[in-house]
């Protein structure tokens, strides 16, 4: 019999289908895990973007990880990149994806650092990239293109 704490750990540990270096917990997509009256678990998730095509895969992966669990989607409060954990940000960087900056606090448009060479001398190529949550940048120092999880 899986305890509620274990169920939370299992749900948090499921990899994100689009950014498999991150878990759903690190991404901030798993909001709650509850034990229902009949003893089954309910996982509450929130989509990163309204049109996130990974949502049905996430739902399937969670049910696979926690057999019998139900998955409920909530929109409010809306997901923010601020919910990506420190560990998650580090993993993104290690995998060549620039992590998002904190929203709100910064007035100056600080440049996005290159996740490969660390140079701040980078340019935006396109605000939209391979998935809804990323923008495409290029490093002027090492000349490599890279993805950046854009702040939302």
């Amino acid at each position: 019999m899986v305890s509620l704490a274990e169920a939370r750990r299992i749900a948090d540990g499921v990899p994100d289908p689009e950014l498999p270096v991150l878990t759903l917990g690190e991404l901030g997509v798993v909001r709650e895990v509850n034990e229902l009256a009949d003893g089954r678990f309910e996982v509450v998730i929130t989509p990163t973007y309204s049109g996130c095509p990974a949502l049905s895969a996430i739902r399937d992966d969670l049910v696979h990880a926690l057999p019998g669990a139900s998955v409920r989607t909530v929109l409010s409060p809306p997901w923010s990149t601020d919910w990506i954990t420190e560990e998650g940000r580090e993993k993104l960087r290690e995998h060549g994806i620039a992590p998002p900056r904190r929203t709100g606090a910064v007035d100056l448009p600080l440049s996005v650092r290159c996740p490969r060479c660390g140079s701040p001398d980078t340019e935006l190529v396109s605000r939209f990239s391979s998935t809804a949550c990323k923008a495409l940048h290029r490093c002027r120092a090492c000349l490599e293109p890279f993805d950046h999880v854009k702040e939302i």
Binding site: C52, R127, F128
Partner: peptide
């Protein structure tokens, strides 16, 4: 190519909102 990806992303956001 960048604009192709951008326009598809805009379409995806709108489709998500339409479904909701």
């Amino acid at each position: 190519l960048e604009e192709d990806v951008a326009l598809a992303n805009l379409a995806l956001d709108l489709l998500g909102q339409a479904r909701l």
